[in-house]
């Protein structure tokens, strides 16, 4: 049987669940017989609980955005180029990624890409993130989004078409669209990017379901570095 010295010597392992199974058995046997070590263990649990009860305030709401912007200004990134066609619909995630490649050139050109369908849940706001991959900076590009019937962009109730002018940086530019399905339906979300004489458009089918489902399909490669989106 483990004695007090051995138990105290392995108390950290015991607390963190890192004891070998046979040692756990021995520690348990010792604890059943030793009031002092029972009290030691209780004090350690109480210390842990008390420390964990100490609040750690959340940062200012704007802090992370400011911090990342400042980090970006501080120096160049060596982030590798992403593939032209990027995008994925990540199951079990509020953030659904879809996207398409964009290669501006001097000749007029139009690309069209049809993406796999995704499922959104009725009356729940779900963020669809569009990934636009620009191989060079685009100034004054126009984004045009057309929503299917029964789906609204949060903040724009009743509007099925939304468009605006924006600048894109070189690389992948993200656009978050918080969508809310207000009616059970199916239809296509169309996103069109125009710059000069070039344009690119993709279509993604939205399936509105009344309850949550695992039906979100993943048809495209997961974006690099996005393994931990939850």
């Amino acid at each position: 049987m483990m004695n007090c010295q051995e138990f105290v010597g392995q108390l950290d392992e015991y607390m963190s669940g890192e004891m070998e199974p046979h040692a756990v058995d021995a520690a348990g046997a010792h604890l059943r017989a030793c009031l002092n070590c029972q009290q030691r263990l209780a004090r350690r649990h109480e210390l842990r609980a008390s420390l964990r009860s100490q609040a750690a305030p959340a940062p200012r709401p704007e802090f992370f955005a400011q911090a990342i912007a400042l980090a970006r200004q501080s120096g160049p990134s060596r982030f590798p180029h992403w593939p032209r066609l990027v995008g994925a619909a990540l199951a079990a995630s509020l953030a659904l990624w879809i996207g398409f490649g964009w290669l501006p050139g001097t000749q007029p050109q139009s690309d069209s890409t049809k993406l796999a369908g995704i499922v959104i849940v009725l009356h729940q706001t779900q963020t669809v993130q569009l990934a636009f991959n620009a191989e060079q900076p685009l100034v004054g590009a126009v984004l045009h989004v057309r929503l299917p019937i029964g789906v609204e962009l949060r903040g724009f109730p009743g509007q099925r078409e939304v468009q605006w002018r924006t600048d894109l940086d070189r690389g992948v530019n993200l656009l978050s669209l918080p969508l809310t399905a207000v009616a059970a339906s199916e239809g296509a979300l169309r996103a069109r990017l125009e710059h000069g004489a070039r344009s690119a458009e993709f279509t993604v089918q939205l399936h509105v379901r009344k309850t949550a489902t695992n039906e979100i399909r993943t048809e495209y490669r997961t974006l690099p570095g996005h393994r931990e989106i939850t």
């Binding site: 959340a58 955005a65 970006r72 940086d169 978050s176």
Partner: peptide, 29 residues
């Protein structure tokens, strides 16, 4: 032009970086 707030559109490298660190920011803070 639609009055979508500029903040809705993140920029390229910034967005990539953000998505990498985002799941950990609360923990780190």
């Amino acid at each position: 032009k639609n009055p979508i707030p500029p903040s809705i559109a993140l920029r390229a490298a910034q967005a990539q970086f953000y998505e990498l660190v985002r799941p950990h920011l609360d923990h780190l803070h």
